[in-house]
Amino acid sequence: MTMDTNLADLRRVLGDLETGQAGPDISAILAAAKLRPHRSAGIALARLAQGQLWQICAGAAIMLAGTATWSSQLGAMGLLFASGVLFHLLGAVMIACAVMIRMLAQRVDLGGPVLETQLRMARVERIAAFEGWVLGMGWCFLWIPAGAALFYLLSGFDLFSLGGSGLWIGCNVAVGVLIIAVLRWVRDMAAESGNVGLAQTIDGALTGQRVRDASAALAEIHTFAA
């Protein structure tokens, strides 16, 4: 490659693409695309909007499970806290966030000006990344209430009645910290054994890599707009 690259050379390369002398066969791809015109394309925003449907379903299931647990046990303070406060609230938050993110994603007009559209997309992706990280990390501290609620649904016995609220909250926090510690250990082991992909995935989940990526993308767009 010469160091004297010319803009005219670049224009010639693009000109070849205009006349179809290079690049993929558009007519064949277009014929295939016409057969499924409403299929969501593989862009991140479309996947994000679709993913929210699953989150709405999961949130509804969690809410129903929470309601089924506490509605018949209003006198059991432990279950009321575990399933009523945590799970009912968790399910409602999951549904509300999913509906909001889906609406925001669907309102992005891909045919709009590039800068404005990219800003909207980056904002939606950052909100979704933050919500996903908070809800995901939250689950580290929800296994004991989830287990107790499930145990009650299966056996009718309130595990929280065996100890005071302080004991169960303490256990809950301890289990959450333990889960995070185990994840960090697995991350370190994966890194040492050369499994960089697994190590980076766990690291990203623990430290909110998606949130940082989305924030960096948003910052890049703001810099361009300035």
Partner: peptide, 15 residues
């Protein structure tokens, strides 16, 4: 490139 063109075409037709 083929993947991108396919995604763009699907979005163009859908929009």
């Amino acid at each position: 490139r083929a993947d991108l063109i396919q995604d763009i075409l699907v979005q163009l037709l859908a929009a």
